[in-house]
Design a binder for these strands. Structure first.
Lengths: 203, 203, 203, 203
DNA sequence: GATGAATGAGGGTTCATTCAT
DNA sequence: TATGAATGAACCCTCATTCAT
């Protein structure tokens, strides 16, 4: 069991580093965030990080993957196909908002690195850019799946699902940004209601 | 008049540098874009840039300011209070879309640097981050003014204007991103129509 | 002509860096020689070197190539097929000895990096290792060519030329090392005579 | 006796580390060989090595000393002054060749670190560089002693013994390198014969 | 004004060595 | 004694900025 303790400690330390990185990366883009600062925040020497991650990029990728998994788990309930589509949309919207508003750092990272979604593949794309891209695509697919199920149920009848998905994502983003900027502070269920009301009904 | 020619040339040269910077910054975030690359694209020596701008940041700020002014001029027609509110909204939407779709580089810069909307609470804020922030706020104010005028006219009756502004901005952004990603390619007037349709009517 | 002066200065500076590198690399193997030390010796800032060479390895490769070319030019006279084979051998031996004894640093570099000749290709071979290898092979080929021409003339009749080349190279190396260690200080022509006397005659 | 077993185990462990180091150092120069890799090959933790050697250099020195002792023992029979000089030379040549061809790793280490023969005039000399130097000098002395005894017996009559020693060493090295590079594969006694034939007879 | 060589601070990364367990 | 996590010095390299020409 001694072995087990060491492993536990190792995992904990690894997590501390990821958390430190998360905080720093929420304020600075990848290239501006220094390992020095991350190490400092984790109260470690710079070199120590390399015992846990292959390099700066690996650390960042691990962070993104972990956070995306966590986001995905939060949204999972909305994937239950047994639920009514409209209910799935409500659950999803609430889960997404709650997740991000409880965890603003992640969203800041997303915003800070959003440029990477768009940047054309000039030269080699950094691995971490690919990862971010993947996560975004997966998130969009989830949105789209739920939206399509709503359409099958008669909502937003004649609109292009791609377009609807984009708009949905844009509205969510606006709300989160508004919250971040202190322009909005309603409780989450109220926000969800407001958002759903905005969506074009089929009727 | 020789003096005047010199000035004209100087302004032209300055403009070339800004254009080069714009192109580079649409592909890379501030810290990844090098003066070397900008100078190369402007067909100048690195040192020459310092004859026109105090430093890298100053160049970036000048770029942002200039672009924002240009954007503002494009949207100006919608500020005419003599027009019908709904028409103002249509004009604004069309102007914004047209401006950005004709000028994707600027939007890429915006996306690439969007993280800076979120003001870091600690440490020094780069001057250019503050500028970007200012521009965004001014744009939001323009949106809000038009939206409020619509509300006075009976549209979106009971909604919070702040919230509506955010949503409007989010929808615009979605459409531009969809366009960039090749997911959308309808002509602009059609897009405007789609967007306005989405907005909740008063009725 | 101003341009020409700049170019001239550039080449001169480049040469200074190579010379500094040569001195340092004659004392330390590649991995132990630091750019810091090279820059210091060239009386330049570390960063300046990167204006002249892509990186440390590029600098080293340029050095090796330059030195090998220079060595080759020194040995060139022995390649004249119009000469009597035995005379060619004498000329070559004298040229090689004179070149290295006048230019001990290069030989030190060779010795300091000799390990790379043998190291099996585990993983990727550094580019500079390949270059060193190439130079050595070319040198051996020159030796062999002259030796074979001697054999055709009746010298060392029945020996394997490969073997003879190795031995020749080994003897040369011994003499240079002896000189370096201060064990030998005869004038070069005397050394050449001594060496040639050692070689097995055909008779 | 428990104590004795402990000691035995300790020595064995120490030996394992030296062997691992030998293998690694035959492929990489001192500064490129990492303790990590040595420890891995010895199936030990990095820190454990410090229980057996003061530091990396101490380990390297121990290795060199041990190998040199072993080499010396192999050559010992040739030091018997009761034998005929020519026979001593034959025995020595065969012993040296056999030792190195059976133990190529050591020779690779020698080649990889040969640069250290040339004592840097400035700065601090690594202790291990001095050791290598010492070993080489001792080896040369052994060669010289046998060669001088041959001369007293009338061989190579009028040559400078220092010169002959160097040449002898050079020829030996050539043969070993030829073997390593796959250019030579005769059985050892045949090689010895070839070498001795090369050496200038007195007659 | 234009040039581009030179600078040097600062970042990512490696690795010998130490030390608590 | 064995372990391997932690340390931090030192290395290579980049790039904004300066300055002599």
């Amino acid at each position: 069991m001694t072995e087990s303790r060491r492993e536990r400690e190792r995992r904990a330390r690894r997590q501390e580093i990821i958390s430190a990185a998360k905080e720093v990366l929420s304020r600075k883009p990848f290239n501006e965030a220094t390992l020095e600062e991350i190490a400092e925040r984790a109260e470690l020497a710079k070199g120590t990080i390399y015992g846990y991650f292959k390099n700066k990029e690996d650390l960042f990728i691990s962070l993104i993957k972990q956070e995306f998994d966590s986001w995905r788990r939060a949204v999972e309930p909305a994937l239950d196909e047994g639920l009514a589509p409209r209910e799935r949309l409500r659950i999803m919207t609430e889960a997404v908002l709650r997740y991000h508003l409880d965890n603003l750092d992640l969203y800041k990272i997303y915003l800070t690195h959003m440029g990477f979604i768009i940047i054309p593949k000039e030269g080699m794309l950094h691995e971490y850019q690919r990862i971010i891209n993947d996560c975004l695509k997966k998130a969009m697919e989830i949105y789209r799946e739920v939206i399509i199920s709503c359409q099958k149920d008669g909502l937003f009848k004649d609109k292009d699902p791609q377009f609807l998905t984009l708009v949905y994502q844009g509205v969510i983003q606006s709300v989160i940004m508004g919250w971040m900027m202190g322009l909005i502070d309603k409780p989450i269920p109220k926000l969800v209601e407001d958002i759903l009301e905005l969506l074009p009904e089929s009727s």
